[in-house]
């Protein structure tokens, strides 16, 4: 009796969020999936519900889209590697080398930019990288030749790396914090030099943290379209920008849906890989 009532209570609790998710989230995803197999009538511009694989055929045959996909995945991967390299020294210091007060200060400093608008921060980079921007003032003052990174893939790489760094840093800090000090003592006790200890104990135990961070640096970068629009150049379109253009400008929702499916598959596959490396285990 009580068991049955308890179950009923659980169902009642779960029903609203579950219904919401099914209807609006999974439902819209399902329609997206369907519409990827529809087409646009070339004369009227209306979406017609005739099944076709043309959208996917175009994606594979047209080199432009292949290049866009490669660029999107390539920059996302580069951003991930960059953020891992940038995050490690700082995370290590925060997690293992400083006292509790300095640790808190550093963590707040890392998180501080997240309270300001992302748009404002991206525009700030335009001011830094622009032809007459802050970076060039300093370079010229130092007698060095000015750079012209603005509106290039380099700018995109820099801005993405900056935007997602805190999201790599935080899980890495928490992974490093959770390594008991006695494990490091034990490694040294058995003859491991500090570098060997890092390689055989600290680094492997930090992999789940890096995997969790890469969900942001890689998977979220993949789906981005605002940053490429604001700091990228003519040759910096991401998959998201192509989707945006097809939905808004040319009204080709089926093609946009097909390209989105590619993105979803890549992200889905990446999530599986990240899970294997322990990205979602404990926090």
């Amino acid at each position: 009796m009580t068991g049955g009532r308890k179950l009923l209570g659980h169902v009642a609790l779960l029903l609203p969020p579950f219904g919401w998710l099914t209807l609006f989230y999974l439902g819209s995803l399902f329609i997206l999936l369907l519409s990827a197999f529809w087409q646009v009538d070339p004369m009227s511009g209306d979406v017609v519900h005739d099944w076709t694989l043309d959208n996917f055929r175009l994606l594979v045959s047209d080199a432009t889209y292949r290049i866009v996909a490669q660029r999107t995945i390539g920059i996302a991967a580069l951003v991930t590697v960059t953020d891992i390299l940038l995050a490690w020294p700082l995370a290590y210091v925060i997690a293992r080398k400083v006292g509790p007060r300095l640790k808190l200060t550093l963590l707040v400093l890392v998180a501080l930019p997240l309270w300001s608008s992302m748009l404002a921060r991206i525009y700030a980079w335009r001011l830094i990288l622009g032809h007459d921007g802050v970076l060039n003032w300093f370079l010229r003052a130092a007698g060095l030749p000015g750079q012209s990174f603005a509106f290039t893939n380099v700018a995109l790489w820099l801005v993405f790396s900056y935007l997602w760094l805190p999201f790599m840093l935080m899980p890495l800090v928490s992974a490093l914090e959770r390594i008991p000090a006695s494990l490091l003592d034990a490694a040294g006790d058995m003859g491991a030099t500090p570098w060997q200890t890092f390689r055989t104990v600290i680094f492997p135990l930090a992999i789940p943290g890096m995997a969790a961070g890469s969900v942001f640096t890689f998977a979220v970068t993949l789906g981005e379209y605002v940053t490429p629009m604001l700091v990228g150049g003519a040759g910096s379109e991401f998959i998201g920008n192509v989707v945006y253009a097809n939905v808004g400008v040319s009204g080709n929702v089926p093609f946009a849906a097909a390209f989105s499916m590619v993105l979803l598959v890549v992200i889905g596959a990446y999530m599986l890989v990240a899970r294997r490396f322990g990205a979602f285990e404990g926090a």
Partner: peptide, 20 residues
């Protein structure tokens, strides 16, 4: 001398086994 240059082995209170 650091621990790795001493011919000593330790059994730690929390055992300090490598979880991975």
């Amino acid at each position: 001398l650091p621990p790795y240059q001493r011919d000593v082995n330790t059994m730690f209170q929390d055992y300090a086994l490598f979880p991975h």
